[in-house]
């Protein structure tokens, strides 16, 4: 189990398409790594997923905790038949659903995170604005298409792994990603159009 200390998480996480986390060409039913190791390698992946799955920003950290705690408590029930990230995605999706329902009941507790603003950081501001545009556009998609795009184009998963995470066949995964891209492109275009109209 874990040794009680904070794992060495400063190393770059292997969540973005690292080979070790992909088990498509490896043996099935591999042993689940220790929770500290999973946290070190997949913390950012889980953190991003919780936000993409609609968990309010104020509750993301709690949801991430729940994911790894559930993973530890039920580790003997889990068997890695494919991707570790696919397993994490399944757990995160269930945890996120619970947090979304809780947030819907307690709207007053949900607060939008305060965006830190630094003076003279135009590039950073533009990045934040672009991220906000894409985040809003993603929020406008249904979950199937949104998560297909997130896993494939943001998390960088190969399409078979995306299909595994979403528990759909590969062609459906391709289709969802294409449709999501088209919808996002239209949303970005509308953003540019509104920006042009506001700019004198």
């Amino acid at each position: 189990m874990h040794d009680g200390s904070i794992p060495p998480v400063l190393a770059p996480p292997a969540a973005l398409g690292d080979h070790a986390s992909r088990a498509h060409d490896g043996p099935h039913d591999a042993a689940l790594p220790a929770v500290a190791e999973l946290f070190r390698d997949h913390y950012e992946f889980v953190w991003r997923l919780t936000g993409r799955l609609g968990v309010p920003a104020a509750a993301v950290d709690d949801a991430v905790q729940d994911v790894f705690v559930v993973l530890h408590q039920r580790r003997h029930e889990f068997a890695i038949r494919g991707s570790v990230r696919a397993l994490l995605y399944g757990i995160t999706r269930r945890v996120a659903r619970r947090y979304r329902e809780r947030a819907a009941r307690h709207v007053e507790l949900v607060e939008e995170p305060v965006e830190p603003a630094g003076p003279g950081l135009d590039e950073e501001l533009a990045r934040r604005q672009a991220a906000a545009v894409l985040r809003d556009a993603l929020a406008g998609l249904d979950e199937d298409k949104r998560m297909a795009f997130v896993l494939a184009d943001i998390e960088g998963m190969p399409m078979p792994e995306v299909a595994e995470c979403l528990e759909i066949n590969l062609n459906t995964a391709y289709s969802r990603v294409r449709v999501a891209r088209q919808l996002l492109q239209r949303a970005i275009a509308r953003h540019h159009a509104r920006a042009h109209r506001r700019t004198p």
Partner: peptide, 9 residues
Amino acid sequence: FVGALREVD
């Protein structure tokens, strides 16, 4: 946009 989102989030 995706790159910006990766950087920010």
